Amino acid sequence: MQAINSVNKVRLPPSSQRVLALLEDGESRTFKQVTQEIDISPRTVRYAIKKLKENGMIIEKFNFRDARQVLYQIKDVLTAEEAQKAAA
């Protein structure tokens, strides 16, 4: 059974819900960090991230520490940071 996200009424698989819950703390994480922290197979995490990106719930950011890796972050966190920078 898939839960419905209350924000935009999207059905998310359980794996996407776990990835989203992990990223809700506002920290950016690499793919490897996500797979290690929620202990789901990499293939399932890849699918979960794909679904979250399709629904516009997370974004990919450039990783300045290691350009070979991408950072994932919840979209709302980024907009809040941009709002703070604009207000300053």
Results as ranks from 00 to 15, higher is better:
M1N: 02
I4Y: 04
I4T: 10
N5S: 07
N5Y: 08
S6K: 11
S6C: 10
V7H: 09
V7Q: 06
V7D: 13
N8H: 03
N8L: 01
N8D: 11
K9S: 14
K9L: 02
V10T: 13
R11G: 02
R11Y: 13
L12S: 03
P14H: 09
S15K: 14
S15W: 03
S15R: 13
S15N: 15
Q17R: 14
Q17W: 15
Q17G: 15
R18W: 11
V19E: 06
V19S: 03
V19C: 03
L20Y: 15
A21G: 14
A21F: 12
A21E: 08
L22C: 07
L22A: 00
L23V: 04
L23G: 09
E24K: 14
E24N: 12
E24Y: 10
S28F: 01
T30Q: 04
T30W: 03
K32S: 10
V34Q: 06
V34T: 13
Q36D: 15
E37S: 10
I38D: 07
I38K: 00
D39I: 15
S41Y: 09
P42A: 11
P42S: 12
R43H: 03
R43S: 15
R43D: 09
T44D: 14
T44I: 11
V45L: 06
V45H: 10
R46E: 11
R46C: 04
Y47C: 08
L52G: 05
L52D: 01
K53V: 09
K53P: 01
E54N: 06
G56L: 02
M57S: 04
M57F: 03
I58H: 00
I59L: 13
K61E: 04
F62L: 04
R65Q: 05
D66R: 13
D66T: 08
A67S: 12
R68S: 15
R68T: 10
Q69I: 06
L71R: 05
L71F: 02
Y72K: 00
Y72D: 05
Q73T: 12
I74D: 09
I74K: 13
I74T: 12
K75M: 06
D76M: 08
D76S: 11
L78I: 11
T79P: 04
A80I: 07
A80F: 02
E81T: 04
E81D: 05
E81Q: 14
E82S: 09
E82G: 02
A83N: 06
A83V: 05
A83I: 04
Q84I: 08
Q84T: 08
Q84N: 05
K85V: 14
K85D: 12
K85P: 01
K85Q: 08
A88G: 07
